[in-house]
Design a protein around this nucleic acid. Structure first.
Length: 429
RNA sequence: GGAGAGGUGGCUGAGCGGUUGAAAGCGGCGGUCUCGAAAACCGUUGUGGGGGCAACUCCACCGGGGGUUCGAAUCCCCCCCUCUCCGCCA
């Protein structure tokens, strides 16, 4: 969420940012309001606020006067009759004010973040910029298989039975497949904690406030699984519960930066991606992920983004998986992000780089929404922290990359050196 | 699921419906004393918002939302959360 004062004072900057994101001039279809109308609304809000406060002041002053008279056993009838109805008037004005504030807030929640100046301008993923590549896609002296074929041949991934148990877009991992899933998870958590991230294991069902805090609601309700009766949402990423750890808190300056890493299952409806990646593990309703989350001081957030991305990259490097780093362009940038790097790993089965991590700086966008602030030593007032997060890494997709990159001519899969101790074997045969 | 207790400032903990933004203690900060420190003493110590160049000033906030009243932390209603005991259960 943007600051209404920023919107008020910089409508042109906002328009420019929206244009770069490919949203033309802004009108939030969902709330049927455009920027000019909101600016007008803001003017009315402040006018009304002044009126209400003036009345409240009158109420306070006169009520005190009445109290004084009563204590002195004097007659207060005149003042009492004068005050009759003032509260009602306040209530009326206040209701109107509340309505305006609701409208304004709703509107603000549909405005995306302002892209950082370093973000390449472009209209869609074809305009994303490759920042660097690491490793060389290996050549194979045989036609490399897809991971779902490898998984089936080795008997470690069972899609048929998974669809019997749950449905499409689920997988049943078996034997070495299940072990590999667990090995990756432990490997990633161990590496991340060695880099100073504190391991946390959060709730994976969360309430509405948490989903709103990180920006999944109200705009992306269609992507979420929800439990109806006691109302809960299944998290689409650990970003949600972990960022919400500090919702409505005022942190001390010396607490920052805070680094967390968390393994969680993630759940996504994948509505609107019918027909995309229908086979294999790439796009599942339920998948495992290890996440990196940071709370930092504003002046540090872009350095921290580079460091966070490097931490995620190191996982791929240790697994010796070729990848590239892509800076998302303005048109491809997520709603809440000011800047995002995607890590794309090489998949021989698809002869393509595929996203395996997404590392973003949200600046104060999430923090304002989730009300996460900090207080500087010796300074009055508070500031919003900057939040960042990135996958470190998506486990299912990493498993795919391992299977496809380490497959052998004889159908077996070698285990990367870094995972050997976690797997207890050198190869899956 | 049944029965009870409770939610007040960074923490502990008071608060007859009317100078209570809120006693007191602790903690924090500043100062006196000291070679320095501790102790002692004095002072200070919330968040958000509106107006103003500023000094400053006004408004809101005692779990959340309604209500009663000239006036609510205090009275009434609803909701949420935490804790204890019983039952059930991984």
């Amino acid at each position: 969420m943007l600051d209404i004062r920023f919107v008020r004072d910089n409508p042109d900057k906002l328009r420019e940012a929206l244009r770069k994101r490919g949203m033309a001039d802004f009108s939030a279809a969902e709330v049927q309001m455009n920027l000019d109308q909101v600016l007008e609304l803001e003017g009315r809000r402040r006018q009304l606020l002044r009126e209400v406060e003036e009345l409240r002041n009158k109420r306070n002053v006169v009520s005190e006067e009445i109290g004084k008279l009563k204590r002195e056993k004097k007659d207060a009838a005149v003042l009492l009759s004068e005050m009759k109805g003032v509260s009602e008037k306040i209530k009326d004005l206040d209701d109107g004010l509340g309505e305006i504030e609701e409208k304004e807030k709703l509107f603000l929640r549909y405005i995306p973040n302002i892209p950082h100046e370093s973000v390449p301008v472009g209209k869609d993923e074809t305009d994303n910029m490759v920042v660097r590549t690491w490793g060389e896609p290996k050549g194979f002296d045989f036609p490399p298989l897809n991971h779902w074929d490898i998984g089936e041949i080795l008997g470690i991934i069972d899609f048929d039975r998974a669809s019997k148990i749950a449905g499409a877009r689920f997988a049943l991992m078996k034997g070495a497949g299940a072990r590999l899933e667990r090995a990756l998870m432990n490997f990633m958590l161990d590496l991340n904690t060695s880099k100073g991230y504190m391991e946390v294991f959060p709730p994976i069902l969360v309430n509405r406030e948490s989903m709103t805090g990180t920006g999944q609601l109200p705009k992306f309700e269609m992507e979420l699984f929800r439990i109806a009766d006691p109302e809960f949402y299944l998290i689409p990423t650990a970003e949600v519960p972990v960022t919400n750890i500090h919702r409505d808190e005022i942190l001390k300056e010396q607490d920052l930066p805070i680094y967390y890493t968390a393994y969680t299952p993630c759940f996504r409806r994948e509505a609107g991606s019918y027909g995309k990646d229908t086979r294999g593990l790439i796009r599942q309703h339920q998948f495992n992920k290890v996440e990196l989350v940071k709370f930092v001081k504003p002046e540090d957030s872009y350095d921290e983004l580079e460091k966070l991305t490097a931490n995620a990259e190191e996982i791929l490097q240790r697994l010796d998986l070729p990848y590239r780093v892509v800076a998302l362009c303005t048109g491809d940038l997520g709603f809440s992000a000011a800047k995002t790097y995607d890590l794309e790993v090489w998949l021989p089965g698809q002869q393509k780089y595929r996203e395996i991590s997404s590392c973003s700086n949200f600046e104060d966008f999430q923090a304002r929404r989730a009300n996460i602030r900090f207080k500087r030593e010796g300074k009055k007032g508070t500031e919003f922290v900057h939040t960042l997060n990135g996958s470190g890494l998506a486990i299912g997709r990493t498993l795919v990359a391992v299977l496809e990159n380490y497959q052998q001519k004889d159908g077996s899969v070698r285990i990367p050196q870094a995972l050997a101790s976690y797997m207890g074997t050198e190869a899956i045969t």
